[in-house]
Design a binder for these strands. Structure first.
Length: 480
RNA sequence: GGCGGCGUAGCCAAGUGGUAAGGCAAGGGUCUGCAAAACCUUCAUCCCCCAGUUCAAAUCUGGGCGUCGCCUCCA
C-alpha cells in the first residue's frame, strides 16, 4: 500500500518516498512563546502528532523536531509591559505549552530547539548567504535579496511582480532601508534597550525566518522529508525558508510541504489579532481533552474547521461512544476470561482497512469510522452483558475487536481511562449501594416515588447508574 | 488586483468514473410510575449552478456563483 500526501509545493497528491527509508525527518514550525496557546495551535500540534505516530505505526523511523521562537517583538513587548525579561516570558509560555500538550496527549517531539540557542547556525547561514551574494547589510540590518533567488515564489505560487506590498494592510514603515519592498530581514540591529546578541554585523537579533532554516540544517540535514505548519505560514515564512536554505545548499529544503487548515470562529480565522480565540486551558475546563482531539481528527486536516460549542458538545458524545468501546476490555476482561490466542487475520484485516483509509493523505476521519464501528459493537455487547448477563459474540471475537480498537485508537492518541470508576468507588461501597437500592425498592413498592427518585439521584451523584429491569429487579453499574 | 483551497442531509464528514461510509442531532417503537440506560427502527432518488466528455460523473473537462486563507504579526 502506498501512502500519498498532498504536497503544497506541487499542489497535488504524491506517493510518499522518504530520502532514506525507513528514516523520516520531519520539522514543524512551532509557536512564538508570548501567550497561552489557543485551539488553532492545538490543531496544528494534534494533527502533526498523529501524523508522526501514524508514520511510526507504518514502520518508519521518525525524527520529529519542533521549534520555539523565543525572541520576537511580541515577546519583547510583553516583557516590557510586565516589567520582566524576554527569557522569563518565553520560558513561562513554553512551560505552559508543554502542560497544555500533555493534557491533550500530544507526544513530545524529539527536540525543541529555540531561536536563542541556535545562534551559531543562524549566523553561519547568514554569513554564507552574504558570501553567495543573496544578502546585503544596511545600518546593522541584514536583508535577503529576494530578486536574486530565481525560484522565489515556487511554494506559494507567487510571482515577484504580483507581490502587492501592503495588501494585507500591515506594512512596517520603518523598514525603508530595504532595497526592495519584498526583501526580508535576516538580522535586525538592536534598538537601545533591547536584548541583543553579538554578530559580525553588530549587536542584534535574528529575523524570524532564518531560525527555521538554521535549525533544520543543524538538526536534520540539508533536505528533510516533511516540513509542516499551519497554512498561514506558506507565505511568507516557508517561502522565505526555502529561499534561505536552498540558496545556500543548492538542494531542496524539503521533499514534502504539508499544511494544516485554520480553525475558524463564525466564519473567520481564529487568531490573536482578531481576539476571537479560545485558549486550550479554557477549553479543557469545559471539554474532555479527548473530545478536542476527536474534534480535530474528524475534520480533514487541510480544510478549515469551524469552532462552535455545539460541535464540541456533539463530539463529546462521540467520544463517550469511543470511550465505552475502549473501556470494554478493562471492565469485562475478567468476566470474559480471555485466554484464547488472538485471531491475527481478523486484526490484520481491520488494520488494513484503517491503513487504506488513512494512507490517503492522512484521512483520519475515514479511519475513525472504523473505530466507531468497533466501539459501537463493543458497547452493545458490554450493555448486553450488564443488562442480561450474556453476549451475542464469542469472547474471542470480542477480545480481538477490543484489542484492535485500542491499538488503532492509540495511533490517534485517543485513550480512555477508568480512573473515574476507581475514584468514585472509594466514595461509596458496593454493599452501601445494595442497601440503598433495597431502600428505593421498598419506597417504590409503597408508591413513594419521591423518595425513590431521591435515592436514584443520590446514587447518580456518586457515579452509580440504576437500571430498572423487568421483573422488579434493579441493576446498577458505575458511570464512565 | 494576484495566488491557493473549499462547496455532499439540520451540523461535522467519507467518497478519486459504476450508482451516496461514519459521527452528532432528530423522529418512531419496545421497556417504564416517571426518568435514565439499553435494544430495534427511520432519516440525501441525490452531491452549489450550467454546459461538455462517457454506456455510466458527487467523482473528469470548461464556465459561473458562493465561501475561506495568504499577499510580509500569524498555527
Amino acid at each position: 500500500m502506498n501512502l500519498t500526501l498532498y504536497n503544497t509545493l506541487t499542489n497535488q497528491e504524491e506517493i510518499f518516498i522518504p530520502v532514506n527509508p525507513p528514516k523520516v525527518n520531519m520539522y514543524c514550525c512551532g509557536i512564538t512563546a508570548y501567550d497561552y496557546c489557543h485551539l488553532g495551535h492545538a490543531r496544528t500540534c494534534i494533527v502533526w502528532d498523529v501524523v508522526r505516530s501514524y508514520l511510526i505505526w507504518r514502520g518508519y523511523e521518525v525524527k520529529y523536531i519542533q521549534n520555539f521562537t523565543d525572541i520576537d517583538d511580541k515577546i519583547l513587548n510583553r516583557a516590557k509591559n510586565e516589567n520582566t525579561t524576554m527569557e522569563a516570558i518565553s520560558e513561562r509560555f513554553i512551560q505552559a505549552y508543554f502542560e497544555d500538550m500533555q493534557r491533550l496527549n500530544v507526544k513530545p517531539a524529539d527536540a525543541y530547539p529555540r531561536a536563542t540557542h541556535a545562534l551559531d547556525g543562524i549566523k553561519k547561514l547568514i554569513w554564507e548567504l552574504e558570501q553567495k551574494g543573496y544578502a546585503y547589510e544596511t545600518q546593522g540590518d541584514v536583508y535577503y535579496s529576494v530578486s536574486k533567488f530565481k525560484d522565489y515564489g515556487k511554494l506559494s505560487g507567487r510571482k515577484l511582480e504580483d507581490l502587492q506590498t501592503g495588501a494585507s494592510g500591515r506594512v512596517n514603515q520603518s523598514e525603508a532601508v530595504k532595497q526592495e519592498s519584498f526583501d526580508f530581514a535576516l538580522w535586525k540591529s538592536a534598538k537601545p534597550d533591547e536584548p541583543s546578541f553579538d554578530s559580525p554585523w553588530g549587536k542584534g537579533r535574528p529575523g524570524w525566518h532564518i531560525e527555521c532554516s538554521a535549525m533544520v540544517r543543524d538538526m536534520l540535514g540539508e533536505t528533510i522529508d516533511i516540513h509542516m505548519g499551519g497554512n498561514d505560514l506558506i507565505f511568507p515564512h516557508h517561502e522565505n525558508e526555502i529561499a534561505q536554505s536552498e540558496a545556500v545548499t543548492g538542494k531542496p529544503l524539503a521533499r514534502y510541504w504539508l499544511h494544516n487548515g485554520m480553525v475558524k470562529v463564525d466564519g473567520e480565522k481564529m487568531s490573536k489579532s482578531l481576539g476571537n480565540f479560545v485558549t486550550i486551558r479554557d477549553l479543557l475546563a469545559k471539554y474532555d481533552p479527548m473530545a478536542i482531539r476527536l474534534f480535530i481528527l474528524q475534520a480533514n486536516y487541510r480544510k478549515p474547521l469551524d469552532f462552535t460549542d455545539e460541535a464540541l458538545k456533539a463530539v463529546t458524545n462521540g467520544w463517550h461512544t469511543l470511550a465505552e468501546g475502549l473501556l470494554f476490555g478493562v471492565k469485562y476482561r475478567e468476566i470474559l476470561n480471555w485466554t484464547e490466542k488472538a485471531n491475527l487475520s481478523f486484526i490484520k484485516s481491520v488494520q488494513d482497512h484503517f491503513c487504506q483509509a488513512v494512507d490517503h493523505d492522512f484521512n483520519f476521519a475515514a479511519g475513525l469510522a472504523i473505530l466507531f464501528e468497533l466501539a459501537k459493537d463493543l458497547r452493545k455487547e458490554g450493555n448486553l452483558l450488564t443488562h442480561e448477563g450474556k453476549t451475542s459474540q464469542s469472547s474471542q471475537e470480542l477480545g480481538d475487536k477490543w484489542h484492535t480498537l485500542v491499538n488503532l485508537a492509540q495511533i490517534l492518541g485517543l485513550e480512555a481511562h477508568s480512573n473515574e470508576i476507581e475514584n468514585i468507588s472509594n466514595v461509596i461501597t458496593e454493599s452501601e449501594i445494595e442497601v440503598l437500592i433495597q431502600q428505593r425498592l421498598d419506597a417504590r413498592q409503597a408508591k413513594n416515588y419521591q423518595e425513590g427518585d431521591r435515592i436514584r439521584d443520590l446514587l447518580k451523584d456518586k457515579g452509580v447508574t440504576l437500571i430498572d429491569a423487568s421483573g422488579g429487579i434493579t441493576k446498577w453499574h458505575w458511570n464512565n
